[in-house]
Design a protein around this nucleic acid. Structure first.
Lengths: 195, 195
DNA sequence: AACGATACGGAACGACGTTCCGGTTGCCAA
DNA sequence: TTGGCAACCGGAACGTCGTTCCGTATCGTT
């Protein structure tokens, strides 16, 4: 029985044991390296940490973005799923939006260099860009829609632009104590309100 | 008479004619290269455009930041000097602040990659960072002070953070038609208002 | 014209991302 | 158990880029 069900009825050939072991080791090593040196850490460092050759990294994760997404997938999913929950449990739609954006900001500012990588137009980061957008823009859009319907915020704000703006504001947060990204994001969110 | 007065009583040895010629050629070449490929254009490209060796670039401009500052110094000065003028000629201090920030944003979004370079923590860009801050933070601070004194905006906003936030919002503007940095900056500035 | 200071050019080096291939290892069938 | 082959691995090798360095050329003065 060489094949395995990968969650959605698709039969994919089961990977070799050493390949699975290396993939796990790489994820752990990458997570540690990202914490220690940011997501821009040289590929070779991650390879050394994981005790594998650089070729092995590229085989499992063709681009750096694939590795980043794999490392942070759980947290991004959690953020996405928190959207509807906040909407259901908050006093007002605007409060829910603000709290959700806080979650997003908290995630970004604790990941050295991730916000910068998100905005990079380097082709290697397109996958990263796309994953964040696919997963978070709809959630943000829903929060915006409800808040607009409640006449709490201006009607002409789109989720994509807002999310990119928030992401941009998070760049460099954490490396300069004089720069308070959370505060600026709050100001931006305040600017969304109808007067 | 080999020495020359460099503006402030300091006698500095006059540079050789070929050195002055090359410096001019480099500034022109860099300006053209920045427009064509952004401020991250490889050093060698600039050297080729100027018809010079790479060593000559590093002799005249030890870091990339020095070259960028030299290319854009005039525009940055103009932006700084526009602050007081706007303050004098605008309807309200908040309007002056908004207009001045518009100038700053217009400058940034038309210079490919400059906003990103401004926030980079790479040591080579420290000079750039410092020059922008030295020149523009005081101007922004003055605009903020007056607007605060007029009770138009919240009192707890500092010029450094605001300027960095605006700069951050400009990252990637121009390379993605879906991302409207000007609009987000407007929202941020709107968020500064007292309720 | 000759000479010293100044400036030039580009080769060379190290860091990095990425590709490629000879050797190794896990897996299945016989 | 073992043979064989596909999958997989490691790291050498290549191209790009920033940066340094030094032998050579040029300028300005005497």
């Amino acid at each position: 029985m060489p094949d395995i069900d990968s969650g959605s009825g698709q039969l994919v050939p089961r990977k070799r044991a050493d390949a699975r072991r290396n993939e796990k080791a790489l994820l752990d090593a990458a997570a540690a390296a990202f914490v220690a040196s940011g997501v821009d850490v040289p590929v070779r460092n991650i390879a050394v940490r994981a005790g594998v050759g650089v070729g092995t990294i590229y085989r499992h994760f063709p681009t750096r973005a694939d590795l980043i997404v794999a490392v942070y997938r759980h947290q991004i999913e959690a953020c996405a799923e928190a959207g509807p929950a906040l909407l259901a449990g908050s006093a007002t739609p605007h409060a829910a939006l603000a709290e959700w954006i806080d979650l997003f900001v908290d995630f970004l500012v604790t990941k050295h260099g991730l916000a910068a990588a998100l905005q990079s137009d380097d082709a290697a980061f397109q996958t990263l860009h796309a994953y964040f957008l696919d997963r978070l823009v709809p959630v943000c859009g829903q929060l915006l829609d409800v808040a607009v319907a409640a006449s709490e915020i201006r009607p002409d704000v789109d989720a994509y632009g807002l999310l990119r703006g928030v992401g941009n504001l998070c760049i460099g947060a954490g490396s300069d104590p004089r720069y308070d990204a959370r505060r600026l994001v709050h100001l931006l969110v305040a600017g969304l309100r109808v007067r």
